[in-house]
Amino acid sequence: MSDLTLRPPRTAGTARPRPGSRAGLLRAVLVRLGTALLVLLCTATVSFFLVRLSGDPVKVLLPPDATAAQEHALRASLGLDRPLISQYLDFLWGLLHFDFGTSITYNEPVRQVLADRLPATLELAAAALVVTLVIALPAGIVAAMRRGRASDRGIMTGVLLGQSTPPFWVGILLILVFAVGLHALPASGYGTFANLVLPAVTLSVYSVAVVARLLRSSLIDVLTSDHIRTARAKGFGPVKTVLTHGLRNASLPVVTVIGLEVGSLLGGAILTERVFSWPGVGQLTIEAISNRDFPLVQATVLFFAATFVVVNLLVDLSYSLLDPRVRTSR
């Protein structure tokens, strides 16, 4: 499979994308795009049939004492009385126009409901990204440069803890300490900077651990390579050597794994939003599933899949920014 994609296989932690011929590159790009579309189509299809196979939504939506006439009316208004295949085709046709139908609980276009919740999620994700970079980059660099010393061991212990701790437990602990104990930050709510702090930290714990650990191991690999010795021979100090000749080289495998970890991060976002009652797409997803608001479920599931796909396309793109051997393949 690695011959078909730009990405190195998962097991090869430090492998870099091979430069291919120009035709090979084009082919790889097309395969990536094709896979992306396939993923979206599969997601849409699975979510479509899943919500319909799981029982009659009408039965769930109406109170138990509803009459047959009421049932029939609701079924017709939801379009559920038509053959499954025509519902499916309509659904796909709608997707092409970014039309996801109407939310049952909100009685609004799903697109609108989603758009209302999107800013909160983006805000949270951006903040968590900043926290991740600010903590994980220095931590990974220090651990790699001071390998085996106390600082390395301390950082790696933190990494192990961070990777093993589910985000909702992190969130609850933070609330206990900073909201209940110290009264320093709000336990929930949305709008101010103070509201953002705990959710952002909660969401970033796992990614900090992943990025720091990977950066460390990949930097350790890079630091033993010949061109690092060249930089040292030029008179560069250890820090300057790492920053100019190590970090970028070490970031390739890190970027790869970030792409693969997006799924976990999205799951973390859903949980984090739940812990802090954050009014984002994650909370909306849980709500929609609990309420059996199936157009909304389909749309939110698709939204997360699309996020995954887009991030991974960006990851592939970033190879060519980071690695000239991909860019100028000859």
């Binding site: 390579s225 061109h227 008179g235």
Partner: peptide, 24 residues
């Protein structure tokens, strides 16, 4: 030593394939 390296005393290494930074 950092001031001497590369300025007073310089080195050329065996393998030019790996001794140059591939990304710069």
């Amino acid at each position: 030593l950092g001031r001497i390296r590369g300025s007073d005393i310089a080195m050329v290494f065996q393998d030019p394939m790996t001794s140059l930074d591939p990304l710069r």
